[in-house]
Design a binder for these strands. Structure first.
Length: 468
DNA sequence: CTATGGCACGGATT
DNA sequence: AATCCGTGCCATAG
């Protein structure tokens, strides 16, 4: 219905196919670079700064798409169109806002720089390389998976140097980075904190001697083992829970409170934006597939005619340019076409999820979708893997979330636990789910709990007893 | 005995 | 061909 773009879109050559795949797996940001460099290298390629409505092909001026086509036809047929990133009007502001207080796409790298800046002044020049190496080796949680001695051997520097630098890293802004594990990290954080606030005397001892019991919130056991009053233990444990984090890297962004660490999903600008139609909130969903350029690509007609009258010795080079430009333009077109069809199918299938949340995610596989669209499975996989989507509520999620087989069930588990009055065991949760016509094994509930960061029933019960 | 987590297997998915 | 996922079995802790 919206496929009125000019020409034949079937892959003509293997080169065409290969390059289209190559382009499909790029995110919008990466595509921007590719297009820019192709434009600068290839004089035969031209960017025409003129936009047309992808539905009716009418020329557009200021608007992102033509209002006639937005006036909805059916009820929930999605409107899918290409939009130049910098011209997208509706969601632009929200992206900026979202980006302001959220982790950047390369949070890891930024965190690294952040650390280096802090400790830089303390280092002699020869130590900077060591510091950079150590920081680069930190994992997602901020731990150093290898022993300092290993790093020292690898870098051919004295162990003492490594230890000195690690000391700086551990005391830098998100405190406790560069330690071996959560336990060491907590101890370091405690030391840092002790500088400017009162730390319960028991806290350190509990972490040192009752690590396992602490994880299980078993205060009775701890107070017996340390021969300390219950109240003091509880107070110390609460201090730990409130002020320290077992995963130092994650504390870099956002607040440290909120115990079941809500791992907020963090991405930069999305590759696709889904929003409600501005006029009819019940109407079709509006889907913007972003392109990194405005206008469209084609072979420069002047270049083509110049070819006829150029010098013979230049002819070969020129026609090579020409061919390459036309191939590139076709591939970009093919990519955009595939992305539009892909998003159209996805949005049709997942309308409920988009509007009403995780619970309504319909099971959908890449394989089935590839059959529906008549493309190869790997095409879908690649296209899905590197893209993010912003939803009407402003969340930015990876496109792959639309293919999560267990999301809706996990959400059901979450809400059952959230509503429970007494802590339910996994078996009881299985029964509750059965009432909602969801049939899964007890073992699976346990797995889902784990991935959602929900504690086992016994510990939840203990928490409930302590809290009110 | 009950609740839970680890390991590993088979089947589906990518 | 490699990976992911749901599940059964078994060991462990309380």
């Amino acid at each position: 219905m919206f496929i009125s773009t000019s020409g034949d879109l079937r892959p003509l050559t293997t080169a065409h196919l290969a390059q289209t795949m190559f382009l499909l797996e790029k995110s919008t940001a990466e595509l921007a670079e590719t297009v820019a460099s192709e434009l600068s290298e290839n004089p035969a390629l031209e960017l025409v700064d003129e936009r047309r409505c992808p539905n009716c092909n009418r020329e557009l001026h200021q608007q992102a798409h033509c209002p006639l086509c937005l006036a909805h036809d059916g009820t929930d047929t999605p409107i899918v169109y290409l939009a130049a990133r910098d011209l997208s009007t509706s969601s632009r502001k929200e992206f900026d806002d979202a980006q302001a207080d959220r982790p950047e796409p390369e949070a890891q790298e930024q965190l690294g720089e952040h650390l280096l800046r802090q400790i830089g002044p303390d280092l002699v020049p020869s130590e900077r390389g060591v510091a950079a190496y150590l920081i680069a080796r930190l994992d997602d949680d901020g731990f150093l998976p290898e022993a300092p001695a290993e790093s020292a051997a690898y870098l051919h520097v004295p162990l003492a140097t490594v230890q000195r630098i690690l000391g700086f890293i551990q005391r830098a802004d998100p405190p406790g980075m560069g330690t071996a594990d959560s336990r060491h990290s907590l101890l370091v954080q405690l030391d840092v904190l002790a500088g400017d606030m009162a730390v319960p005397p028991l806290a350190r001892q509990i972490i040192l001697e009752c690590w396992q019991a602490l994880g299980k919130l078993d205060y009775v056991h701890i107070s017996r083992q340390l021969r300390a009053p219950r109240a003091a233990v509880t107070q110390a444990a609460q201090f730990i829970a409130r002020n320290l984090t077992p995963y130092p890297a994650r504390a870099f962004w956002g607040a440290t409170n909120g115990r079941p660490r809500r791992q907020q999903e963090a991405y930069g600008q999305p590759d696709v934006a889904i929003s409600r139609s501005p006029n009819h909130t019940d109407g079709p969903l509006v889907v913007e597939v972003f392109t990194p350029y405005s206008g469209w690509l084609r072979v420069n007609p002047e270049f083509r005619s110049a070819l006829r009258q150029c010098q013979p010795e230049e002819r070969e080079d020129w026609s090579r340019y020409l061919q390459r430009a036309s191939l590139f333009a076709k591939c970009i077109q093919q990519r955009n076409h595939t992305m539009r069809r892909l998003m159209d199918a996805v949005v049709r299938a997942q309308r409920g999820f988009i509007l009403h949340g995780d619970r309504h995610l319909a099971p959908m596989t890449r394989a089935a979708l590839s059959r529906q669209l008549g493309v190869h499975e790997s095409t879908i996989s690649r296209a899905v893997a590197s893209k993010t989507v912003s939803l009407p509520d402003g969340q930015i999620v990876p496109l792959s979330k639309f293919f999560d087989r267990s999301l809706s069930v996990r959400d059901a588990v979450k809400s059952i636990v959230a509503k429970e009055t007494r802590a339910l065991t996994d078996d009881q949760i299985v029964l509750r789910l059965r009432e909602e016509n969801i049939h899964i094994a007890r073992r699976t509930v346990a797995k889902y709990r784990a991935t959602e960061g929900i504690l086992p029933a016994q510990i939840r019960a203990r928490l409930q007893a302590a809290a009110p």
